[in-house]
């Protein structure tokens, strides 16, 4: 492929469109980042550089609300990502290393169900479900809903990684009298690490960012960061929200960078 003349590959204008695309993607975020450092309380006038809105996030009148929301968001995201990654790893092992079986397609359909159903439908269905079994909405309802819809996001990178690992490593271990359990935990799992980490991070971020489903299943006074932010931005975006957004953006960039380097080390095979 590398021998193909570059002139044949490239098309005039595609670079310009790509740059336009990046401009469109980044312009709103850059603007929000810039205005988060605005000294003015007004979102429309620029009155000099200041960190007051960052201080406001931690000490201002709404700080308690956002601290609690951040705590809820991160604990839910960690637990949901851990649970869904575990479930997805087990499922991937069955799907990739379990031979051919009748329910394989059905299982795959079930696992990818949260990806196929529009989010608003999942949200409504979950609300109806909790309501009909008389389950009081709160922290726990958010957590179980997140575990469920994070499973496919954890599953995809994990199963992709597993398909890329040749079976011969485990076979070799078992030839040397390792039990299946040992082959799984001592051989397959370490090789799987990059895939599991990507799956975990993906599930973590998806849970951290979810608004629609959380908004439907959350209970009284239990806010996550997105629902707390929504409560504020509906009345117009305020500088403290811009500061929170910028911090979340930085956090996401760090996470994605980590997963980027993890997947780069994915050249072991």
């Amino acid at each position: 492929m590398a021998t193909v003349n570059n002139d044949i590959k490239t098309y005039k204008g595609f670079r310009a469109i790509t740059l336009l695309c990046l401009l469109v993607l980044y312009a709103p975020l850059v603007i929000v980042t810039i205005y988060s450092f605005n000294a003015s309380a007004s979102i429309t006038n620029w009155e000099g550089l200041s960190f007051r809105w960052y201080a406001d996030v931690f000490t201002g009148p709404e700080s308690d609300k956002f601290k609690v929301a951040a705590f809820n968001s991160f604990t839910i995201a960690i637990m949901a990502a851990t649970a869904s990654t575990t479930i997805a790893t087990l499922a991937a092992t069955a799907m990739v290393r379990g031979g051919k079986f009748k329910l394989r397609t059905v299982s795959f359909g079930l696992i990818s169900l949260p990806l196929m159903v529009p989010e608003i439908v999942t949200a409504v269905a979950t609300l109806i479900f909790f309501n009909s079994i008389g389950f009081t909405r709160g922290y726990l309802t958010i957590l179980v809903a997140h575990i469920a819809f994070c499973i496919p996001f954890a599953y995809l990178p994990i199963s992709a990684r597993m398909q890329g690992i040749e079976d011969s490593f485990e076979q070799a271990a078992m030839d040397l009298y390792a039990t299946k359990r040992q082959a799984f935990t001592k051989v397959l799992m370490p090789l799987m690490a990059p895939g599991i980490i990507s799956g975990f991070l993906l599930a973590f971020i998806v849970s951290l960012d979810d608004f629609i489903i959380t908004n439907f299943v959350k209970g009284a006074g239990v806010e996550t960061l997105p629902t707390a932010i929504f409560g504020s931005v509906k009345q117009g975006i305020k500088p403290n929200i811009m500061a929170i957004s910028t911090m979340l953006l930085s956090f996401s960039i760090v996470m994605v960078t980590i997963s980027y380097f993890v997947s780069k080390s994915d050249n072991t095979k």
Partner: peptide, 16 residues
């Protein structure tokens, strides 16, 4: 796919 963990596959799938 291979069938290394064929016997355990129902248990592995159960949580999901």
């Amino acid at each position: 796919t291979t069938d290394t963990y064929k016997e355990a596959r129902n248990w592995l799938l159960l949580p999901s």
